[in-house]
Amino acid sequence: MYIQNKNGEIDTYSCTFHPPASKSDIERLESEIGINIPLDYRNFLETCNGCSLFDHTLYGGENITSVALMFSESS
């Protein structure tokens, strides 16, 4: 996607959505953190297990971590 900045320059950005989390991954996360995930966040994970929003080649973007990545970082 193209976004125009305040100086009138147009930059290219992208959004990437990960494949859905499995039910077992979500249950493992709930077990690890000791609480049930809110329904809206569970629906998000079942739709796309994390995403990268507004990625720019120089500036990066906003990352929403996947369930699998949460476990790989804590190991």
Rank of each mutant, 00 (worst) to 15 (best):
K23P: 01
N5K: 13
Y41L: 15
T16W: 06
E73T: 05
V67L: 03
A21I: 01
T65S: 09
Y13F: 15
I10Q: 14
N7G: 03
S31K: 14
I35S: 07
G61L: 08
S24I: 03
Y2Q: 15
E73D: 05
L29K: 02
S14M: 08
G8Q: 12
G61V: 10
H56E: 05
L53K: 05
S75G: 09
H18N: 15
N63K: 12
L29Q: 01
M1D: 07
I33E: 03
S52H: 12
E27K: 13
E30R: 08
L29P: 01
T57E: 14
D25W: 00
E9H: 15
K23M: 04
N5D: 15
L45F: 15
P38K: 12
H56Q: 11
G34D: 06
E62H: 10
F71D: 04
D40P: 03
A68S: 14
Y41Q: 13
T16F: 11
T47S: 13
C15E: 11
I10D: 02
A21K: 02
S72L: 10
L69W: 02
C51N: 10
E30I: 09
F54A: 08
P20C: 10
E30L: 07
E62S: 08
K6E: 14
T12D: 12
L58I: 12
I26Q: 06
Y41K: 14
L29C: 05
F44A: 10
A21R: 02
D11Y: 14
L58A: 12
D55G: 02
F54M: 11
G34L: 04
N36H: 08
I33T: 05
G61C: 07
L69T: 12
E73R: 09
L45I: 03
G8A: 14
I26F: 03
E9G: 11
E73K: 09
S75F: 03
K23A: 10
K23Q: 10
L69P: 00
